Simulated assay, not measured.
Amino acid sequence: MYMVNVTSDNFAEKVKSIKTIIVPIGSVEAHGHHLPLGTDIFSPRVFCNMLEEKIGDIVWIAPEIPFGQSYDLSIYPGTIHVPTEVLAQYVYEVGRSLFENGIKNIIFLNGHGGNVNALNLASEKLMALGAAALTINWWVDYSKDILTITEGQGHGGEDETSAVLFYNESLVEMDKAIINNRKPTMRMYFKDRGKVIYKDALSGNSTLANKEKGKKIFSLVSDRIIETINMVISETYYTD
């Protein structure tokens, strides 16, 4: 259930049994010339709506954190960049307060690759408090599922464009969709990486996207996310 929709008294009662929360995290960032700046916010938002419908009685859903680490693409207009160490500390403090309010399992539903280092650092610190923290990077963790629907993936590419078309096709300017087939050969940090690899703030083939693919992605991946959440709740962290 959406945390902000309940009263303080109701929260105090329900948190006795509901110990897991989803914290959606995105970014405000350029995604090619055809997608809105809020692309990385919208996908976690759709997933949260689906989680609310399907399992809203066993998980809390926190308000989304809209800003993220977007150094690579900060050269493009409209991108808002928060340094990793600042984002990590902020997310940790949010998680710490949730933990102090009685929530044990904190699941970061991440919509943006640049946030990963910060979320990992925050999770390490939360673990030390006694919380259980997990980051779900939906486009990576369920990549095999997504690639049964799309030919490829990318920043503002086929998968993300299809996702936003499903969310609100009026926000997408498909006549500006293009292709950028450049792919990094390693996780190398170098000057102008964003300009070189993510030419036009894009990677992949956005021209192949359509709304139906987006619908299929959200349907399939939301089921996978629910499977992961159930494993977290049952503390199925490993196999023998």
Rank of each mutant, 00 (worst) to 15 (best):
I80M: 09
G95V: 06
D40G: 06
N101P: 01
I136C: 08
E93R: 15
Y142W: 11
F99Y: 15
I146Q: 09
L35H: 01
I55G: 05
P66Q: 07
L98K: 06
S70T: 15
P44V: 12
G56S: 09
Y92Q: 12
S27P: 02
G78I: 08
S43K: 13
G68T: 08
S143C: 11
I80S: 09
L35N: 01
I65F: 13
V28K: 05
G114Q: 01
K16G: 04
S74E: 03
I21Q: 07
M50W: 08
K144S: 14
P63V: 04
T84P: 10
A128H: 12
V59H: 06
G78F: 04
L37Q: 10
I55H: 03
E93L: 15
S97G: 08
E85D: 15
H112W: 03
G130K: 02
E85H: 14
H112L: 02
E52F: 11
A62E: 03
M50P: 01
I25H: 04
I65P: 00
H33W: 11
P66Y: 10
H34E: 10
E29F: 03
G26Q: 06
H31Q: 11
P24W: 00
I61E: 01
I58M: 14
G32V: 02
K144D: 15
V46K: 14
L98I: 13
V59Q: 07
S43N: 06
F108N: 01
L73E: 06
L134H: 08
I103P: 07
V59L: 11
V46R: 14
Y92L: 14
V91Y: 01
L134N: 06
A118G: 00
R45A: 14
P77G: 11
L87S: 03
L35C: 00
M127P: 03
P36R: 09
I107L: 10
L87M: 13
N101L: 06
L134T: 09
N110V: 10
S97P: 00
D145E: 15
G26A: 12
P44A: 13
I80R: 05
S17T: 14
P24K: 05
E100Q: 13
I65M: 10
I22A: 00
T20S: 15
I22G: 00
K104C: 05
G56F: 05
Y76R: 04
H33R: 14
L35W: 01
F108K: 02
D40K: 05
V23N: 02
